[in-house]
Amino acid sequence: MEQNEQPRRKASFAASMKAVFWSFFGVRKRRDYEDDAVNLNPVHVIVAALLGVAIFIGVLLLLVKLAVAQ
């Protein structure tokens, strides 16, 4: 591989979702982090993070709605 050539990104969107999920908890092994940095597509990570935040907010709103209804 030439020095200026970008590494090929070969991880799927599901792998990006998994990495973002574990990152929300702050639990990542250094080896996994390094693999993610090489293999994950940055666009997939951004979309996965936005989706994760939306799900998190939805769950919080649902819990608040249930607590207030009691």
Results as ranks from 00 to 15, higher is better:
Asp35His: 05
Gln3Phe: 13
Val53Tyr: 14
Gly58Asp: 12
Asp36Asn: 14
Leu60Gly: 08
Asn4Arg: 13
Phe56Ala: 11
Ala48Phe: 08
Phe21Cys: 01
Asp36His: 06
Ser23Pro: 00
Ala11Cys: 05
Arg9Thr: 06
Val45Thr: 03
Arg30Phe: 15
Asp32Pro: 03
Glu5Ile: 11
Ala48Asn: 02
Val20Lys: 02
Val45Pro: 02
Gly58Arg: 05
Glu5Lys: 15
Ala19Ser: 13
Ala15Trp: 03
Val64Arg: 15
Phe25Ser: 03
Leu66Tyr: 15
Lys18Thr: 11
Asp32Thr: 06
Phe21His: 11
Glu2Thr: 12
Ser23Trp: 14
Pro42Gln: 04
Ile55Leu: 08
Lys65Cys: 03
Ala11Trp: 04
Asp36Ile: 07
Val20His: 11
Val59Ala: 14
Trp22Phe: 13
Trp22Tyr: 12
Asp35Gly: 06
Ile57His: 14
His44Met: 05
Leu63Met: 07
Val68Ile: 03
Gly26Asn: 04
Met17Asp: 10
Phe13Met: 09
Ile55Met: 06
Arg31Gln: 06
Val47Cys: 08
Ala37Glu: 14
Phe24Lys: 10
Leu66Asp: 01
Glu2Leu: 13
Met1Tyr: 11
Tyr33Gln: 00
Pro42Lys: 03
Asp36Ser: 12
Gln6Thr: 10
Ile55Gly: 00
Ala49Ser: 04
Lys65Phe: 06
Gly58Ile: 01
Pro7Ala: 00
Ser23Asp: 09
